[in-house]
């Protein structure tokens, strides 16, 4: 027995004392808690700071620390409880800005069906800039939808989604990122109303199968659209100038 277990044994049937100890320990465990945020953390709103785990739905507010100043590492990490419902992150038209490291929004566990990330209400557009990767989701069912976001000046990809079959990525501007504007590997991804300009490699890099892509691409140093795999629908592409190649499709034949 550990000394703590000895304590509980000695208290015997004194349940009130047990409750006091348990609640005290629980309180002290969370007294240093500064990492979980959302609009409903045990009935209260906890404002998000840089590097925090979003554990409940949240709509950011202008005074939240995460939108004030720069984040040294990650911006926000979406982490639903195991078996939890889908998380919704509403950026309220605000900006997450990094110092060149970390991920702006990293989805570790989006909840059942994947997370929903929106830049705000209709008319609001959020910006995610200056991280290594703007938005990243790796694994099964991480993302259900990403919409109304500007991904700008991230060191590598503006957005990277691997997995998440059927993910919806819409109303996205991805510009001036250091590698691909958007990199998606998935089954049946729905990519529409995307504007990919001035990225250091591809504007939209999609692999996997049966993606549907509607995008405007211009001034990307690689291909405007790089589509690898089978069954992709590229009928909604608008091509601008200034690219090494407009559309690269593999297999080509």
């Amino acid at each position: 027995m550990t000394p703590t277990q000895v304590c509980f044994s000695a208290l015997g049937r004194s349940m009130w004392a047990v409750l006091i100890v348990t609640s005290f320990v629980a309180f002290s465990s969370s007294a240093g808690a500064a990492g979980g945020c959302g609009d409903d953390i045990n009935g209260a709103r906890v404002a998000c700071s840089c590097g925090d785990a979003v554990v409940s739905d949240v709509r950011l507010r202008p005074g939240d620390p995460v939108v004030l100043g720069r984040c040294k590492g990650d911006g926000l990490i979406l982490r639903a409880r195991p078996g939890g419902e889908s998380l919704r992150l509403d950026l309220a038209g605000l900006s997450l800005v990094g110092e060149g490291r970390g991920t702006g929004i990293r989805v570790l566990n989006g909840g059942k069906g994947g997370a929903v990330i929106v830049g705000g209400k209709p008319g609001e557009v959020a910006e995610i800039a200056g991280f290594t990767t703007g938005i990243k989701a790796h694994g099964s069912e991480r993302i259900k939808e990403v919409s109304r976001v500007v991904l700008k000046a991230n060191k590598r990809d503006g957005l990277r989604v691997y997995g998440s079959p059927g993910a919806i990525i819409s109303d996205i501007t991805t510009t001036s990122n250091g590698r691909d504007g958007m990199r998606v590997r998935s089954h049946g991804a729905q990519i529409h109303s995307v504007d990919a300009r001035g990225n250091a490699k591809a504007g939209v890099n999609v692999s996997g199968e049966n993606a549907r892509v509607q995008a405007s691409v211009a001034d990307n140093k690689g291909s405007g659209i790089l589509a690898r795999g089978r069954g992709h629908d590229l009928s909604g592409i608008e091509l601008g100038e200034g690219q090494k190649a407009d559309v690269t499709v593999r297999p080509a034949k």
């Binding site: 939108v67 800005v97 910006e127 800039a129 700008k152 000046a153 060191k155 001036s176 990122n177 250091a200």
Partner: peptide
């Protein structure tokens, strides 16, 4: 923000 690949970028802040 200075992007090492694309130069100055400006991000709106509240």
């Amino acid at each position: 923000i200075c992007s090492g690949t694309t130069g100055c970028q400006f991000v709106s802040v509240p």
